[in-house]
């Protein structure tokens, strides 16, 4: 398995539009190479060390050169993310990267959003999961075009996957693109997808210390949706504690409390979406 993206030769990332039988044959546009064709690894293990190894360079002649690189280790992803971002800005597409732990209600929030505002907002959805078409099918049933990325063993979406998915989905101008990331509060925080805004979702059935346990994600997000507030009377979740902790990590973070089930608070979410500019 390739550790950079979680892909493996036998475990390829797949793309399939909701409602279509065939997987799309998209080029695996990751820019890193697999293997090291250029350099061979020719250690000779097991031979007796009864001879001198030839040392064919001379340190004293000063061939050593320091090459300053100052290159960000995630630069390839970041560059492709900026390319996505430019495309979104040029077409006036508002792109939102939705991140959370599994089960917080990301898909339910999107379903309700599409049912209630789909036509007005012109929504498109990229769904990221390790396996299954379930979420893309749910979104399509709600009324928006959706493409499913199955990352196989990968724990996050990256900019190249979004690049491929956006091309296949043919996202139109003046629209909203929701990118539902793989349910994981850790790994996706380091990978810019080119989104306009990052939205982190927690639900009241989780601990209110999530922002303390996984601060990176809250630090890099713009909006925090607190979902399932209809269940507040039955759980020990303190909205105030959660907000206070999250604000200590990121004092610019905005909050909206809502319930995708009852619809409470959804109007504030729609208002927030309407106020965002792409650039």
């Amino acid at each position: 398995m390739c550790g950079t993206c979680g892909c493996g030769e036998e475990n390829k990332i797949t793309y399939r539009k909701a409602g279509e039988k065939e997987k799309l044959n998209l080029e695996h546009a990751h820019s890193h190479s697999h293997g090291n064709e250029e350099y061979t690894h020719d250690h000779h293990h097991g031979h007796l060390h009864d001879h001198f190894h030839e040392h064919d360079h001379n340190h004293a002649t000063g061939h050593a050169t320091i090459i300053p690189l100052e290159r960000n280790i995630l630069s390839k992803n970041d560059l492709l993310a900026e390319r996505n971002r430019g495309f979104f800005e040029g077409r006036n597409i508002k792109a939102y990267n939705l991140v959370s732990s599994p089960g917080s209600g990301k898909t339910s929030i999107l379903e309700r959003t599409i049912r209630e505002k789909g036509t007005e907002l012109n929504c498109f959805v990229i769904e990221g999961d390790q396996q299954t078409m379930n979420d893309a099918n749910r979104i399509k049933a709600a009324g928006a075009p959706a493409i499913q990325i199955n990352t196989g063993t990968g724990c996050h979406l990256d900019a190249s996957m979004v690049y491929n998915a956006v091309k296949a989905l043919d996202v139109s101008s003046d629209s909203i693109l929701f990118i539902e990331n793989v349910g994981n509060l850790v790994c996706p925080s380091m990978f810019d997808l080119g989104e306009s805004k990052r939205v982190v979702i927690i639900s009241v059935t989780e601990g209110d210390d999530k922002p303390a346990k996984y601060p990176d994600m809250f630090q890099s997000s713009h909006l925090c949706l607190i979902n399932k507030i209809d269940l507040l009377p039955y759980v020990d979740f303190s909205v105030e504690n959660a907000k206070e902790t999250a604000l200590r990590v990121n004092h610019h973070l905005e909050f909206i409390e809502l319930s995708a089930k009852t619809g409470e608070g959804m109007d504030k979410w729609y208002q927030w979406l309407a106020n965002i500019k792409t650039s």
Binding site: A64, I66, I67, P68, L69, I73, H251
Partner: peptide, 23 residues
């Protein structure tokens, strides 16, 4: 106050490499 921002500490980069050339 927790209204603070980073000046540095998020770096993750390759600063330089020192190499030898054949010529």
């Amino acid at each position: 106050s927790s209204k603070t921002y980073y000046i540095r500490g998020k770096e993750l980069k390759i600063k330089s490499i020192e190499v030898e050339r054949d010529n």
